[in-house]
Amino acid sequence: MRNDNKKSVIVGIFVLIGIIIFITGVLTLGGQQKKFVKSIRLNAVFDDVAGLQTGNNVWFSGVKIGTVRNINFYGDSQVEIVMAVESKVKDYIRKDSKATISSDGLIGNKIIVIYGGTTQAPPVEDGDRLMAEMPLDTDKMMETLQENNKNLVTITENLKVLTGKIAQGDGIVGAVMTDSVLADNFKNILSNLDRASVNSNRMLIELNKFAATLNEEGTLIYDLTHDKELYKSLQGSIESLQATADNANVLTNNLNDVTSKLSDRDNTLGMILNDEEFASRLKNTLIYADSSTMNLNRGLEALEYTWPFRRGFKRMNKANQEQ
């Protein structure tokens, strides 16, 4: 009888321990799933939930605030996520906040992350729908990485071929790296360029010094830019030169008119220059006039020795001698 009582007590103790463990587990699991916390429902519609399951956590600013209650199809091909979020955090989540799907760690379970929102928007209420932001597609990322790996392999192969040709001395770079004479010439070119650069800098310095002296008092540039009287004098000289140039143009035009008339026969000088017959007759006339003048001179000389004029010439000679 005593042994039966002892067994009953032991069984009762084990049953009590089991009940305590069960209640503790239920409470723990309920606490993790936010089953016994007052909550509100928030919705978000995604094109792809990327493996998200009911019971996954909902995070806000790095703090777990709820769980995924339901996952339902919505519309033609979208998925609606129903989240149970603690009521105490609703004042911090704004109506313009966004929801996206992320991972709990690198390869952990999928979670919902609520972020963003401005203070200008009011807090969320039970049944509000948040704007969904699609996460990065890991499959597309892997495809991109695979394509990048292929490109990297191709680039590596090309670099291998290129370095091989350079080592063999092919191409300009290979020739420069393997041909000592060409390398020396290249060094000389660089040295000449360096000297040219130094000379250019020196010339620029000298030009700067010269430009600085141009504005010093007493120089021509300074006088031209500061002396108003000199400016007026130069302006007057320029105006005089302009007037002279205008007169020269007028004179040139007049000379052009005169020379154009010289080629015509409707004037005396033009006829003399262009009419050969007239020029010949004028020449003969001048010859005759010269001959007549010579004959007249001879006749006048002969008059000095004729009897009627001999006495008059003697008196004239005597008067000239007395003077």
Rank of each mutant, 00 (worst) to 15 (best):
residue 96 D to G: 05
residue 109 N to R: 14
residue 89 V to Y: 15
residue 110 K to Y: 03
residue 142 M to L: 12
residue 131 M to P: 03
residue 136 L to H: 04
residue 76 D to M: 13
residue 153 V to S: 10
residue 73 F to H: 09
residue 115 Y to I: 02
residue 78 Q to A: 09
residue 126 D to N: 15
residue 100 T to H: 08
residue 112 I to A: 09
residue 72 N to S: 14
residue 130 L to C: 03
residue 125 E to H: 03
residue 75 G to W: 12
residue 120 Q to E: 12
residue 142 M to A: 10
residue 118 T to E: 03
residue 70 N to K: 14
residue 118 T to Y: 13
residue 137 D to M: 04
residue 147 E to S: 13
residue 104 D to V: 02
residue 135 P to D: 02
residue 146 Q to D: 10
residue 114 I to R: 05
residue 83 M to F: 11
residue 108 G to M: 09
residue 153 V to R: 15
residue 94 R to E: 10
residue 90 K to D: 06
residue 59 W to R: 08
residue 144 T to E: 09
residue 83 M to H: 11
residue 94 R to S: 12
residue 75 G to T: 11
residue 154 T to S: 13
residue 112 I to N: 04
residue 77 S to K: 11
residue 130 L to G: 01
residue 80 E to T: 07
residue 102 S to M: 06
residue 122 P to Y: 00
residue 82 V to Q: 13
residue 78 Q to G: 02
residue 73 F to A: 10
residue 143 E to P: 04
residue 86 E to C: 08
residue 132 A to N: 02
residue 138 T to P: 15
residue 144 T to H: 11
residue 85 V to P: 04
residue 68 V to N: 05
residue 127 G to W: 01
residue 130 L to Y: 02
residue 90 K to A: 14
residue 111 I to L: 14
residue 132 A to L: 04
residue 84 A to P: 09
residue 80 E to V: 08
residue 141 M to E: 13
residue 102 S to Q: 14
residue 145 L to G: 07
residue 140 K to G: 02
residue 152 L to S: 05
residue 113 V to S: 03
residue 93 I to M: 06
residue 157 E to Y: 10
residue 101 I to F: 09
residue 158 N to T: 10
residue 126 D to F: 11
residue 135 P to M: 10
residue 70 N to S: 10
residue 138 T to F: 11
residue 84 A to Y: 02
residue 128 D to P: 01
residue 147 E to G: 07
residue 121 A to L: 01
residue 104 D to F: 11
residue 74 Y to G: 04
residue 84 A to I: 07
residue 85 V to H: 06
residue 121 A to S: 14
residue 150 K to F: 02
residue 154 T to G: 08
residue 88 K to T: 07
residue 105 G to A: 00
residue 74 Y to C: 05
residue 114 I to F: 01
residue 67 T to R: 09
residue 85 V to C: 11
residue 106 L to G: 05
residue 117 G to H: 03
residue 88 K to E: 09
residue 159 L to N: 15
residue 91 D to M: 03
residue 121 A to W: 05
residue 114 I to E: 02
residue 155 I to M: 13
residue 82 V to A: 07
residue 152 L to Q: 10
residue 124 V to K: 02
residue 152 L to R: 15
residue 125 E to L: 01
residue 106 L to S: 12
residue 95 K to F: 03
residue 78 Q to E: 07
residue 139 D to Q: 12
residue 114 I to H: 00
residue 74 Y to L: 06
residue 140 K to C: 00
residue 157 E to I: 03
residue 137 D to W: 00
residue 102 S to H: 01
residue 66 G to L: 14
residue 87 S to K: 14
residue 138 T to H: 04
